[in-house]
Write a protein that binds this DNA or RNA. Structure first.
Length: 510
RNA sequence: GCCCCCAUCGUCUAGAGGACUAGGACUCAGGCCUUUCAAGCCUGCAACAGGGGUUCGAAUCCCCUUGGGGGUACCA
């Protein structure tokens, strides 16, 4: 029964388009994809749009974008088709209806005429009586006479599964083994709704069979309904696919299932939706690496690995059945690692949309901007997310007179007073008017020599200049920054800083 | 309430009866390096939920308790 990885598996990711894809869903898809690739099988994308009330047309794009972003191309499904289509459940209504009818014919299902109102009041009564809620099977034992009566009245009906009144249902979960549930704990769940559309229970079982799915990977929230699925499959006379219930992903707080809402934990905002991670500048490769190691472990001694390595080693049996919270800090660390491994030009193109948006400069202007070529290599090891780059270099995109100093202190070197700092700035300016070529390297050498000549520490000398050109106390390495800015602009800023210090610095000292 | 699942450092995890003085990673702390900030390197803090069994021997197997999670819809 267990597929150990040699025979090609057919797995499916079957999201319902009711909202944006979140990381839990993406992780399920990732494991699906990994298993399909590992076994040289197929990864099928199926859209479970049987809930007309919650349907959100935009979410379909979000879903597909998320999968593609991570590099999880599907072998069959929407847009590309395949031999088992259609892959959208709303286009398969007739198939479900036939199977529901077959179930009725065989005595495993029945029509229920109960109104939503009756069901609601029934539940209300059950609750009041302190009993557990559940359908009371009112219509299951209707006489033929009564049924004819309802039909002639034109009463709306649903089709419910006739769960055996006694006995136990046993199903197998690959990670947890056999699980037994007493049938009296089960409900006569609805299979076909009044609008003619199936519920998940029916639709998923029918499609998994018809699409020849061998392994079902799904969230643990489905574990409780697995007996129902086993009953349905048994009733039709089919075999169950291998079931693998993936552990739920918890909120960063470790409390409760991760929701699609942003959560504030310890004052920090945590992301949950795939597009949010995309917009924050997480790299697909980093996310792939990260997600693969939640619920499964590549190698306890090796945190970083490629997709190919992951495919090679992945196995279903090794999946950890216990729920896990996402280690966000580890994601940031990994993302920084992947950013550092990029070539400067690859990083530049990855950065373009972020910089353009945050700096207000068009992408085409940025592509030809020489400043970026100098600055990107030096901020590469300083950012963990792509959206952090702008904060490191925004000063280079402001006009010199737009640079505002928060106070004289920024321009005063360590262990120096304002007057001495002015001297430092002037020395620097003098150096910069003469240095040739105007490159980080040459500037560095000149500044070093000057610091020695003046008998001051490098930090005392460089600090005021850094403040002068960037308006910040923390900035990218000084000499690359100066090179990026260019001689004229740098001198301009130093001049401004000197003027500022002379006007405001009299009373201050370092 | 009832049913089901789960349980190793703060977090992600390794561990499938003796190789465990419980390993790795992130975070955090300290140090080195250093023009700020990073990156890098080194060191350190930190866990088998509790109680009973089984066994010569238990983080590993069984039971109970506790804790956490999921389900309890004409949602998926």
């Amino acid at each position: 029964m267990t597929n150990n990885g040699d025979s090609p598996a057919r797995v499916r990711f079957a999201p319902s388009p009711t909202g944006h894809l979140h990381l839990g869903g993406l992780r399920t898809a990732l494991f699906d994809w990994l298993w399909a690739r590992k076994t040289n099988g197929q990864f099928v994308l199926r859209i479970e749009d049987t809930d007309r009330k919650r349907f959100d047309p935009e979410s379909l794009e979000s879903l597909k974008n998320g999968l593609r972003w991570l590099g999880l191309e599907w072998d069959e499904g929407p847009e590309i088709g395949g031999p088992f289509g259609p892959y959208v459940q709303s286009q398969r209504q007739e198939i479900y209806r036939e199977h529901a009818q077959e179930l009725i014919d065989r005595g495993h299902a029945y029509r229920c005429y109960c109104t939503p109102e009756r069901l609601a009041s029934m539940r209300e009564e059950q609750r009041r009586a302190g009993k557990s809620t559940g359908y009371d099977r009112h219509c299951r034992f209707l006489s033929d006479e009564e049924k004819r009566q309802r039909e002639s009245e034109g009463a709306k009906s649903v089709i419910r599964l006739a769960v055996p009144l006694e006995g136990v249902t046993v199903f197998n979960d690959l990670l947890r083994g056999d699980i037994e549930v007493e049938n009296r704990q089960l409900q006569d769940d609805v299979l076909l709704k009044a609008d003619g559309l199936p519920t998940y229970h029916l639709a998923a079982m029918v499609d998994d069979k018809l699409m020849e799915i061998t392994h079902v990977l799904r969230g643990e929230e489905w574990l409780a309904t697995a007996p129902i699925h086993k009953l349905i499959v048994d009733a039709i006379g089919w075999e169950m696919p291998v079931l693998v219930h993936l552990p739920v992903i918890l909120d960063p707080s470790g409390k409760g299932k991760m929701s699609k809402r942003k959560k504030l934990v310890a004052g920090k905002e945590f992301l949950a939706l795939v597009h949010e991670f995309q917009d924050s500048g997480y790299l697909p490769d980093a996310m792939f690496n990260f997600l693969t190691n939640v619920g499964w472990n590549f190698d306890p001694e090796q945190e970083v690995f490629s997709r190919e390595e992951a495919i090679e080693r992945f196995s279903l049996e090794e999946i950890n059945p216990s729920a896990a919270a996402l280690p966000y800090e580890k994601l940031d660390w990994l993302n920084g690692l992947y950013i550092r491994e990029l070539t400067p030009s690859a990083l530049k193109s990855a950065l373009l949309p972020f910089l353009s948006r945050q700096l207000g400069v068009s992408e085409t202007d940025l592509i030809s901007d020489r400043k970026l070529d100098v600055l990107i290599p030096v901020i590469q090891e300083r950012i963990k997310r792509l959206d952090e780059a702008a904060g490191w270099i925004d000063w280079a995109y402001q006009d010199s007179d737009a640079i505002s100093y928060p106070g004289p202190k920024l321009l005063i070197g360590r262990k120096l007073d304002a007057a001495q700092s002015v001297d430092m700035l002037r020395s620097g300016a003098q150096l910069l008017t003469e240095v040739e070529p105007f490159s980080a390297k040459a500037i560095h050498v000149a500044f070093r020599e000057k610091a020695e000549e003046l008998g001051v520490k490098a930090g005392s000398f460089f600090g005021p200049v850094r403040g002068a050109i960037s308006g910040k106390k923390v900035s990218p390495p000084l000499f690359e920054s100066i090179e990026a800015l260019g001689r004229q602009e740098t001198l301009q800023r130093i001049k401004h800083a000197v003027a500022y210090l002379e006007a405001h610095g009299a009373t201050e000292s370092g």
